[in-house]
């Protein structure tokens, strides 16, 4: 029994109708999926370019540093810009330390028992709480029960609790990426648990932790619902270019709130102003995110273990 000529076998093997059909199917599926992927990417580009085109007439340095004028129908966004910075800084000053310490507890101290599982469950639930429910909580707890009133403090604390679970999760991931051998080496020379964390674990994960915190900067800056009833107001008189116009117990304006206000609540706004506000907010958020992503990529490239 002599084998059939090799060429005919390979020809028969590769070009049967079944194979042809499989190849066609494969190509078609690839095309469909590529189209889907492109359709997911297109919105981002379309949105950004459309926003930019519409906002162009109003975008200028003046728009950033000027205060709203004529019942918010003209002028700039300075008070909102500063208000957002206040809210972000204070909320993260609260949530970042608590979140990082909580992640350290979960990753470095906690044993695998029911209590740890309960904490994990709480973190997941906290991450899933709708933003408007955070607003209700902030109103009930900080504004009324703690008697902070409608204030930057109440709004920031509400935002802090909203950002906390995500900071815990991202920090935990960064801590878990530090190899266990590093810790063991440190324990073996006699260091205590905290000394190990401070001198080995944290320095090796600080960039990852920072990335997670930075991502929450943009989230805190963009959220509207939690500050709607806890401390953000439609309008607040502020000096043009004033760097520290608010006190902790004041209400403040915020960019996200300002966009909601000028696009739905104020009649006869100059056409380009809501668009320009949206561009500033979106630009700030995307810039912060891009920075975090760049940090992550850079970190991944120089990682040695």
């Amino acid at each position: 029994m002599s084998p059939p000529p090799a060429t005919s076998v390979s020809a028969r093997f590769t070009r049967t109708p079944l194979v042809v059909r499989k190849e066609r199917q494969q190509a078609a599926v690839r095309l469909v999926l590529l189209a889907m992927a492109v359709l997911m990417v297109l919105p981002l580009l379309a949105i950004i370019s459309h926003l930019l085109v519409q906002a162009w007439p109003a975008l200028s340095w003046e728009f950033l540093v000027d205060v709203p004028r004529r019942g918010m129908t003209e002028g700039g966004i300075w008070p909102a810009l500063v208000g957002t910075v206040y809210l972000v800084v204070i909320s993260l000053a609260v949530s970042a330390p608590i979140g990082v310490l909580a992640a350290i507890y979960l990753n470095e101290y906690a044993r695998d028992n029911w209590f740890t599982r309960a904490i994990n469950l709480a973190v997941i639930s906290l991450a899933g709480v709708p933003s408007i429910v955070h607003a209700l909580f902030g109103l009930g707890a900080f504004v009324y029960a703690a008697r902070f009133g409608y204030s930057i403090l109440a709004a920031s604390l509400t935002l802090a609790i909203m950002t906390l679970p995500v900071i815990i999760a991202s920090t935990r991931e960064a801590l878990a990426a530090v190899p266990a051998a590093f810790r063991e080496a440190c324990w073996n020379v006699g260091a205590t648990r905290w000394q190990t964390i401070r001198s080995i674990v944290l320095p090796n994960s600080i960039s990852g932790i920072l990335t997670g915190v930075i991502l929450q900067v943009s989230r805190a800056a963009g959220e509207t619902a939690p500050i709607l009833f806890t401390g953000a107001v439609f309008f607040k008189a502020v000096q043009r270019g004033d760097l520290f116009p608010y006190r902790l117990t004041d209400q403040c304006m915020a960019l996200s709130m300002h966009l909601y206000t000028v696009s739905t609540q104020v009649p006869n706004v100059r056409e380009a102003i809501p668009w320009a506000t949206a561009v500033v907010l979106l630009g700030a958020v995307l810039a912060v995110n891009a920075a975090a992503i760049a940090l992550r990529v850079w970190l991944r490239n120089r990682k040695r273990w």
């Binding site: 981002l44 991502l215 963009g222 909601y260 809501p274 958020v285 995307l286 995110n289």
Partner: peptide
């Protein structure tokens, strides 16, 4: 890009 898409604030989506 998908991560950036996820970062767009909801009020901006509402405005769009």
């Amino acid at each position: 890009i998908i991560e950036l898409l996820a970062a767009i604030p909801s009020v901006v989506w509402g405005f769009i």
